Simulated assay, not measured.
Amino acid sequence: MSNFKKITEIASSHDNLELMSTADLLNRINMEDQQVPMAVMNVIPQIEKLVNALTERFLKGGRLFYIGAGTSGRLGILDASEIPPTFGLPHDRVIGIIAGGDGAIRKAVEFAEDDTEQAWKDLQKLDIDVLDTVVGIAASGTTPYVLGGIHPAREQGLLTAGITNNPGSPLALAAEIAIAVNVGPEFVTGSTRMKSGTSQKLVLNMISTALMIRIGRVKGNKMVNMQLSNNKLVDRGTRYLMEGLQLDYEEASRVLKEYGSVKKAMDNYKK
């Protein structure tokens, strides 16, 4: 392991937290949070590199895998789970994997993150392929589970990226593309579910949203491929058609029901 400074473990700039008023706590947390978007902005060139390389593979049938433990793993699963309803892709194109299995989404599984072999086993169960992309997420950049997935994935020729909050960490060195977001020490020392987790969420939003736009799952600025799985989304789709096809609400609703999706209606409807 290389020598690097674990920024995520540096003592908080704030002390005696238990003596602060609620207002003071909230204002100070908010003050720290305001640093996060600027830190993410500094790594946009690395995110761009990933999205461009990922898009090329994705269009050839490749998949996107997120691997992580704890908060990082949950954030990957959250991002992956939003792809089908938001962009209408099958569940098996963007996949989140967490150390300890699906049970770890709700309850921590002790020592699961320390297993150096399980991540690659988890990926192999899903018939990992050279066109696939593996993004490891670990605030510390040292999580054995994540490193144990990234190393063999890169050796096998897959595209690999690492989202971490410690520049120069083993994950940043192991992955082909290092997205190292330096958000500074946490408000509560070492609590990486805070600024580090927020930065990971922002980066994941950027990766998946940009990817979906690049592969044509958005038209204009609309989620035209979204699943019409509840009344709110049906209403949203109807309004998209009102705007896109210059229809009144009643006709747009009828057209949406006829074609079953916003994109099909926009592509095929003729007055």
Rank of each mutant, 00 (worst) to 15 (best):
L158Q: 06
R193G: 12
V183E: 09
A69L: 03
M206K: 07
P45D: 08
K195N: 07
D79V: 01
T189H: 07
N230V: 01
F87K: 00
A23G: 15
T71G: 06
R254I: 09
L173A: 08
V262C: 08
G68D: 01
R93G: 09
K60F: 06
N182D: 15
L147S: 05
M266P: 15
T160Y: 01
G68I: 00
T164L: 04
S229Q: 14
E48I: 13
D235R: 06
G220M: 05
V218W: 02
T192G: 12
N221H: 14
V109M: 15
R214Y: 04
D115H: 13
A39D: 03
V183W: 02
V94Y: 05
L247D: 03
S72P: 03
L245V: 07
L26I: 11
T164H: 01
V94E: 04
K195L: 12
K219L: 14
I128F: 13
I83G: 04
R93Y: 08
T22R: 12
N221A: 08
I207N: 01
P170T: 00
Q118M: 15
P170K: 01
S253M: 13
T86G: 10
T192A: 12
M194W: 07
Y66I: 00
P90T: 01
G216K: 10
V36H: 03
K271T: 15
N27H: 13
R236W: 00
V183A: 08
I215E: 03
G88F: 05
R106M: 14
A104G: 14
V183T: 05
T189C: 11
M266I: 08
H91Y: 12
I97C: 06
K201G: 07
Q227L: 14
A175V: 02
M41I: 08
H151A: 11
Q200Y: 02
T71L: 02
H151Y: 11
N42K: 12
L171E: 00
Y249T: 12
